[in-house]
Simulated assay, not measured.
Amino acid sequence: MSAAAWALPTHEDIESATALPVIDLSELDDPARHDAFHQRLARIARDTGFFYLEGHGIDTRTIEELERLTRETFTLPAAAKERIAIRNTPHFRGYTGVGGEITRLRPDQREQIDFGEELPAVRSINAVDAEHPIWWALQGPNQWPAELPALKPAVLDWLDQTRSVAERLLQAFLVALGQSAQALDALVAAPRNHRFKIIRYPGQAQGQSDQGVGAHKDGGLLTLLLQDDVGGLQVLSSKGWIDVPPRRNAFVVNIGEMLELATNGYLRANVHRVISPQSGVDRYSIAYFFSPSLHAEEIPLLTLPEALNEQAQGPESDPENPLFRHIGTNALKGRIRSHLDVAERFYPEQFRLLQEQARAHGGPLQASAY
Rank of each mutant, 00 (worst) to 15 (best):
E101V: 11
V98N: 07
L41G: 03
G99N: 08
S26M: 08
L20H: 02
T75A: 13
E27Y: 03
I102T: 10
G57F: 00
R68E: 15
A36Q: 02
F74S: 03
H34N: 01
L20Y: 02
T96N: 11
A42E: 12
G97Q: 11
I102W: 12
T70R: 09
I63R: 05
A42V: 07
H91F: 10
E65K: 10
T103K: 03
I23N: 04
T62E: 15
K81L: 11
H34M: 02
H56M: 00
P31D: 07
V22I: 14
Q39T: 06
D47I: 09
F51L: 13
Y95A: 03
S26E: 12
R61S: 15
V98T: 11
T96G: 13
T103S: 11
E27N: 04
R71Y: 09
D30L: 12
Y52T: 05
R106E: 14
R71M: 14
F37T: 00
Y95H: 12
E72M: 13
L69N: 09
I14A: 01
E64H: 06
P90E: 00
H56Q: 00
E54M: 10
R104N: 14
T62D: 15
R104F: 11
E54S: 11
I23D: 11
E15K: 06
A19G: 08
F37C: 01
